[in-house]
Write a protein that binds this DNA or RNA. Structure first.
Length: 281
DNA sequence: CTTACGGCCTGGGTGC
DNA sequence: TGCACCCAGGCCGTAA
């Protein structure tokens, strides 16, 4: 499941190989996850890649506008099972590969997505702030003060707030659970109930977890691979996510799984004390 | 306005 | 062998 560290890893990998490469030919499989695929079919052939950006879990592949033309960006959201890889054209493409852009160096930029929960769209013209919908702040770029304000002003549960892309952008189920475990905060706590010290601790935990995960090139649970097709290594470092019934590495209590904000949430019942509201229901 | 929740999209894995 | 069912993350509609 590509979250911020996985998407960042893909972005860095693509940044190494895409700029300067021209698209020679484009092939489409299923296109129901693409907004206006005819625009991609028209604009991508002959396009020249000139940059790669990440915004939250979104990838933006910048295309060279050429002489005075409007800028173009290929927006890609990997959803749950999306993969964006650059491979030599003579390597057979895996099943569920739905977009193939042949490049001028004999390689291919491929989009593979088993579930097709991903999204792809060509943005023509300058990137307006509203273009990707309302997005929150980058969790690695926010100050402790801003981080605390965005949580403390809300009565929703902390798990829901961390997952909410309009509050912070890029966090998903894995890294919210890992961050909450590290900060010893129960996922059902309300944002407004967190003390200043807890917010400070959570901010530091989020930063540390994301930085470590980026360093290890993300978590490969089922489908995630980077732009070279390689798995990440952070899945071996998980302390809470996916560890139901296993011993907490801090206190040896059994990790539990409950549903919070409609999502599986893994936590240590001893290190992360439940709020009263969660105990009484 | 905020929050909670259910349903939908798809297909691999699991259990009967 | 087959098949119903669960689940994943984001998004949207609805209700309180």
């Amino acid at each position: 499941m590509p979250e911020l560290p996985e998407v960042e890893t893909v972005a860095r990998g693509l940044r190494e190989v895409l700029p300067g490469r021209r698209v020679v030919e484009v092939w489409f499989g299923k296109t129901d996850f693409i907004e206006q695929p005819e625009i991609l079919a028209e604009q991508l052939p002959r396009a020249l890649f000139c940059g790669v950006e990440r915004r939250g879990k979104n990838l933006l592949l910048a295309l060279d506008p050429g002489g005075g033309a409007e800028s173009r960006h290929l927006l890609v959201h990997l959803g749950m099972t999306g993969q964006l890889t650059v491979r030599h054209a003579d390597e057979i493409a895996p099943p569920h590969t739905h977009v193939v852009m042949r490049l001028d160096d004999g390689r291919e930029l491929r989009y593979t997505d088993i579930r097709r929960f991903g999204k792809m769209r060509l943005i023509i013209g300058p990137l307006a702030e509203s273009e990707l919908g309302e997005l929150g702040v980058e969790p690695l770029e926010t100050s402790p003060t801003e981080f605390a304000e965005r949580i403390h002003s809300r009565r929703a549960r902390i798990k829901a707030l961390l997952l909410d892309q309009t509050v912070f952008r890029g966090l998903g189920n894995i890294y919210t659970d890992e961050s909450l475990w590290r900060a010893r905060i129960h996922p059902a706590r309300l944002g407004s109930s967190l003390r200043a010290k807890e917010l400070q601790c959570l901010h530091a935990a989020v930063r540390r977890i994301l930085q470590d995960a980026i360093r290890l090139r993300g978590s490969s649970i089922s489908d995630y691979v980077d732009s070279a097709g390689e798995m990440g290594e952070y899945q071996g470092k998980h302390r809470a996510y996916g560890r139901e019934g296993q011993k907490c590495s801090r206190c040896a209590a059994r990790i539990r799984r409950i549903i919070v904000a409609g999502r599986s949430s893994y936590f240590c019942p001893r290190c992360q004390r439940a709020p009263r509201s969660a105990l009484t229901r």
